[in-house]
Design a protein around this nucleic acid. Structure first.
Lengths: 339, 339
DNA sequence: CTGAAAGCGCTTACAG
DNA sequence: CTGAAAGCGCTTACAG
């Protein structure tokens, strides 16, 4: 037996009704029209049970011109933030009969395939976390084609899609300023890596360099290490930095994870934190509260995406296209004990 | 202007050709038939560029009876393992023109919605990591309907789907046996939590209790804490355990993360690891190599899913349904310095 | 209350 | 080399 799935036509024949009736029973009727009476209903449901019929998504979404699927797109690897957003999205989606898929973006691999998911209407809408590889024109085009989009970005202008402002740049600058104000002049940086394994000049690193420049402090390239995405590399890098003849007195890390490893490296070398090395991370993950001393960091105060999720579904529910708006969930400097 | 997307019909009119030709240009022809000549091709591509036409996934997949999408399903939150598998899947999928979606299962929320993605043919196939909420009959039914499935499970029999054996139970038992052999009798356990916040009697906890029973060692319920999924709770739980009048001498944790926090709690209290507290985790995440002392753990030796991914695409490429097979990627006890 | 029929956007044998 | 036409599995105005 070939794996042919039964269709509504099979159910209709079996139940002695039309395919219209099958559809009415299974999916209801629009506009408050009465559903089929119990006897009809039961005949259909029996046929469904007997055959193991399952609705076919392609047929339905072609006809309805919607997929009832939303996506969450984020740069891999996942984080407590992306995990939390996935969860909130799933709860809200379940209430409305939507399914949620996650789209982790792996820089080297994903490219075209992941864009196809948005462009070719696999989904009705998406929340895009920061640093997804989509530019303004692309987002505008997607929005114009009807995709509901809520995009975390500090620079793009809303244009048929909504933009969530985090003001990451000023929050990151505040971290460096705090270190400078405390007298630090040699500040090591654990940065993200670019494709060539060099420090990535992203908003985090640029904010730091801007703050240094604003205070006339020269940046020492030797103190900038592209290890923020690897726990083991971060540990080793900080260990090496602390063994330098002229070691840094402070550490700014593009990720909280690497900052935590930096604290471990310092502790394992007997260097006091923050006395011997002040440490500030970026991201505000829950783990930062667990380390001793607790991690000073930069990030959103609360692990809460309810407004952004609600906005996505407002878009999805709206009868006509909504104009793009700005939402604000600003990052802040969260001072704890490590720096 | 309503956001009507152009269709191949629009492109055909604009280029003065038939929709068949448009499709041939955009999607090629089966069976080595020659593609349209350059002039035709160019007219079509120009119309595509002018209108911003994008293929519609619903139309194509309804006609082709396949979606060219595969999924990775895993219990949330994500882990280095699920991240790595997503990456490998994405690389393999990109080569074949498939898109990858991740389906994190959040126990409370997901249920029905996530099953719909499999049942209603949103996707052509999936890899299911351990502890996804699908039973044997369900998987058999999905496989019979043509879904390509590779399922991590130690108990299910393959039946139209493939099963990856990890032998988690015997590997976990080996961890407890090692502690017992080293003379430990009071072994604390950081377990997963069930829906009521009590220790979840999963394969990890059961293996531990079995090993204790086999050696006639009574289990002390007071030593079993449901904190394996929360870093902060794990730290606090271990701190409290170590302050007990009769503290445990060893710790087995259902997750490496919680084990690492346990080591931190011990170190912060001045308790030597493994001298004062032997610690063994489960999961073998890279972070376990970073802590001092390096974490003894239970898990797969390598962060490598190439065989499982290859098998999924074998299924997808096969002209007829393949019988289910067993693959083996056994977990092992990985002895490092912590216990 | 129910059914016949059109059509969503594609692909693909088939005819010319 | 290209087009007319059928059909994938649904949903839904409309007629009876």
């Amino acid at each position: 037996m070939p794996p042919r799935r039964p269709t509504q036509r099979d159910i209709a024949e079996r139940a002695g009704v039309s395919t219209a009736t099958v559809s009415y029973v299974l999916s209801g009727r629009r506009g408050g029209v009465k559903p089929p009476p119990p006897e009809t209903r039961e005949r259909v449901l029996r046929a469904v049970a007997e055959t193991g019929y399952q609705l076919d998504h392609a047929g339905r979404s072609l006809r309805r011109q919607r997929t009832d699927v939303v996506a969450l797109m984020y740069p891999a690897p996942s984080s407590p933030w992306s995990d939390r957003l996935a969860e909130e999205l799933q709860v809200a989606a379940a209430e409305r009969g939507f399914a949620v898929v996650a789209l982790p973006v792996i820089t080297s691999a994903s490219g075209a395939a992941i864009l196809r998911v948005l462009r070719q209407r696999y989904i009705d809408g998406a929340v895009l976390l920061p640093d997804c590889p989509l530019d303004g024109p692309e987002l505008t085009a997607l929005a114009a084609q009807g995709q509901a989009l809520v995009v975390f970005d500090d620079d793009l202008e809303p244009d048929g899609f909504d933009v969530v402002r985090q003001h990451r740049s000023s929050a990151c600058r505040a971290a460096t300023e705090r270190l400078i104000a405390a007298g630090h002049r040699r500040i090591a940086v654990l940065a993200h890596a670019d494709d060539h394994g060099r420090p990535l000049a992203d908003v985090k690193l640029r904010s730091h360099l801007d703050a240094l420049a604003a205070h006339g402090i020269p940046a020492d390239p030797g103190l900038i290490r592209p290890v923020a995405d690897s726990r083991s590399d971060a540990y080793a890098a900080v260990r090496d930095l602390l063994r330098l003849p002229d070691p840094p007195t402070a550490l700014l890390s593009a990720t909280d994870r690497a900052a935590v490893d930096g604290i471990w490296a310092a502790r394992d070398l007997g260097v006091d934190v923050p006395g011997g090395l002040a440490v500030i991370g970026i991201g505000n993950i829950p783990e930062g509260l667990m380390i001793s001393p607790p991690l000073t960091t930069v990030g959103a105060a609360a692990l809460d995406f309810s407004r952004e999720v609600a906005r996505l579904f407002e878009r999805l529910d709206a009868p006509a296209a909504l104009p793009g708006v700005e939402l604000a969930t600003p990052w802040e400097l969260i001072v704890r004990a490590s720096g």
